Simulated assay, not measured.
Amino acid sequence: MREPHFWSNPQRHPGWQAHLLAPLGGLYALATKRRVAKAPEGYKARVPVVCIGNINAGGTGKTPTTIAVMQRLQTQGVAAHVVSRGYGGSLKGPVRVEERTHRAAQTGDEPLLLAAFGPTWVSKDRAQGVAAAEQAGAEVILLDDGFQNPSVQQDAAIVVVDAQRGFGNGRCLPAGPLREPVTTGLARADLVLSIGNRAAQEVFTSLWGAQIASLPHATGALEPLPTGMDWRETPFLAFAGIGHPEKFFDTLRALGANLVHTEALQDHQALPPALLTRLAAEAQMRGAQLVTTEKDAVRLPKEMRAQVLTLPVRLNLDDWSPLDAMMSRIGVPQRPA
């Protein structure tokens, strides 16, 4: 589902649609509150558990955040494992994801991408996944999503937010983009991480600075990895099935790429042969090169991966000290390499 335009309206003027849907948003918020508050006590791991989640529905940058945090811990000599529900995958788990043998249809696209950076587990039952990671030697467990799921006790929680979009109009689904009210969610958070360029960060601080003032706040931006590719030389047909495909297209344009066509897909959308055949035929007709995101690339059939370029991006934090301090506070071991 494409995000309705009124979800991005200012909090003070959310739009008539948001007002009309406000009662349903209130019910959604109440259901989330009850699920979090009244569920049986979750599984308590023997090692620190850090949730990387969000208050918004849809893409905010959780996957690149998980990659960045995992790599940060690895440089400090910490064995970090990721546990995910494996959205879109068929495996019930718990099972450790093998990048070379599993397929996205089995594990979900995000776990398959994460497995390239470190030990990653999929489990529909998060508690079982955490227990499996513990047994395999994890010293810290990163929960990929699950901020509103109480089945595992969390020692710390990072709320990831797109700095440009912020918390939208401040309303809960379907009146707005939120899974729960901002104040309710932030009351359980230990750190807010806003992702975006300097201008976007200024917008976020101006609109939401008061709400996050009591929490440590880290900022960062997604930046393309240098690949040696001159993006200005070739016409491109870009496609993406992520939370906000236009961000990927804008990144390509910022690199100088000439996008002759863009195909915005649904988040996690399957890539059936008919769709890929159409995209390949259109690219050939336009004399363009196909290009997509890393997350979409893992859903491509093996026989087509050589035909599609991938633009890798990584999250760079302006200052790691808020996150390092949080990890130290909950007892994550740090052994500088």
Rank of each mutant, 00 (worst) to 15 (best):
P4D: 09
S8R: 10
P10S: 07
H13F: 07
P14M: 12
W16P: 00
W16N: 00
H19R: 06
P23R: 08
L27V: 15
L27R: 11
A31D: 11
R34Q: 13
R35E: 10
R35D: 05
A37C: 14
A39Q: 12
E41A: 13
K44T: 10
P48D: 03
V49C: 04
I55N: 09
I55E: 04
N56L: 05
G58M: 08
G59V: 00
G61H: 00
G61N: 01
T66P: 04
I67G: 03
R72Q: 13
L73S: 01
T75D: 10
G77C: 11
A79S: 12
R85G: 06
R85L: 07
G89E: 12
K92W: 03
P94A: 06
T101P: 13
T101R: 14
H102R: 13
R103W: 13
R103Y: 11
T107S: 13
D109G: 03
E110S: 07
L114F: 08
A115Q: 06
A115G: 13
A116M: 09
F117M: 02
T120C: 11
V122Y: 08
G129Y: 05
V130I: 11
A132S: 14
A133L: 10
A136I: 13
L142N: 02
D144K: 00
D145A: 03
Q148K: 12
N149Q: 14
P150E: 08
Q153R: 14
D155A: 02
A156C: 02
I158T: 01
F167W: 12
F167D: 02
N169Y: 05
R171D: 03
L173W: 15
G176R: 05
E180F: 09
G185D: 09
L186T: 09
D190N: 14
S194C: 03
F204D: 01
W208Y: 11
A213T: 07
A218P: 03
T219C: 09
T219A: 08
L225I: 13
T227S: 08
G228Q: 08
P235M: 14
L237H: 03
A238S: 02
G241Q: 01
G243L: 03
H244Y: 11
H244C: 07
H244D: 11
P245G: 05
K247N: 13
K247V: 13
F248A: 10
F249I: 11
D250P: 02
L259C: 05
V260Q: 07
V260E: 04
H261M: 06
H261L: 11
L265F: 14
L265Y: 10
H268K: 04
Q269A: 15
A270K: 15
L271T: 02
A274E: 15
R278E: 11
A280I: 00
A281E: 11
A281S: 14
G287E: 06
T293F: 04
T293N: 04
T293M: 06
E294R: 09
E294M: 08
R299H: 04
M304S: 01
M304P: 00
R305E: 08
Q307E: 12
V308T: 01
T310N: 04
R314A: 15
D318V: 00
S321G: 01
S321H: 08
A325E: 13
I330F: 09
G331E: 09
Q334V: 15
Q334N: 12
P336L: 14
